[in-house]
Design a protein around this nucleic acid. Structure first.
Lengths: 152, 152
DNA sequence: CATCTGACTTCAAATAATGAAGTTAGCGGT
DNA sequence: ACCGCTAACTTCATTATTTGAAGTCAGATG
């Protein structure tokens, strides 16, 4: 992730976010965190190599998505577990969007459900400032004028 | 993207989607497509190396997110342009989610705006089945029982 | 104090991305 | 028809990233 942050992409929040989350395994680690996993050994189970896991967990901590938190189980030595921060929790729409696309366009597997705390299913949608749902095909992404962006 | 599709991730729509969109540059190419770019030379301007661009464009076509469409400008030879398919357009929430996270957690740059056709700003939100907006922090991702998932 | 286990590091090998240098095809002019 | 020009790709050797195996380290157990 370097050429992706050339001048043309420097000011793009997509490119900048991918600089953090676009690394291989990061989004899958975040998925595990949302599923309640916190320990190194638990993250390992998804198939990430140890050499990679250490580095990615560190990246995620550095980027503020996870925090290390000491814990100790009875009869075990103290260890660190990895907990989602607010910034990490704020990444849920990214996972939700990936799930949504995958379930629509890469059938036939549907292994995840998104629900409220009381079990009602939810989906990701675009809403306008009145809270009204807007059809995704009616939404456009546009560059803002950004007059203040100086190359220095 | 191979170890990411181990048994533990095979049935995960996140991992499967990342198999297509997780490649370096793909999401940025999609961003350009949403901004209206269609030509090879236009995509090149974001800084992707030519050697990579050909491969990624092919991937995106193979995955059904873009289609090749012949066009010819006056006095120019016929060429192919790359147009978003419905599957490609359906990826907009992914970009929207990345933008949303980046604008919140990687200030101070804000270069994109999401709007409806008539210019009203929109944002991504979780809604329940009645169309009511639900706070993202109240949403949980859970594995479905997936009793019916057969390995064939 | 030797042994065991979980959590990491280190390192060489495999894989993927990159930049430079081709290659190909059609247009415009002659 | 031939030549040069340009856009759109390929190919290839270099460089960066990921990987698996093996090693390190700290504390609990015996």
């Amino acid at each position: 992730m370097d050429a992706m942050l050339l001048p043309a992409n420097r000011s793009c929040p997509i490119a900048r976010t991918l600089g953090v989350l676009g690394q291989k395994w990061n989004l899958l680690l975040l998925r595990e965190a949302f599923l309640g996993r916190t320990k190194y050994a638990e993250f390992l189970r998804i198939g990430v190599p140890t050499a990679t896991l250490g580095a990615r967990l560190q990246d995620l901590v550095d980027a503020g998505l996870l925090t290390r938190h000491a814990y100790q189980e009875k009869g075990e030595r103290a260890r660190d577990e990895y907990l989602l921060t607010q910034a990490g929790r704020d990444a849920m729409p990214i996972l939700a969007a990936l799930i949504g696309w995958g379930e629509t366009h890469l059938p036939p597997v549907t292994a995840y459900a998104m629900t409220t705390g009381d079990g009602r299913p939810v989906r990701l949608a675009f809403v306008d400032d009145t809270g009204t749902v807007v059809d995704a095909d009616a939404v456009a992404i546009a560059k803002k004028p950004e007059g203040a962006a100086t190359p220095g």
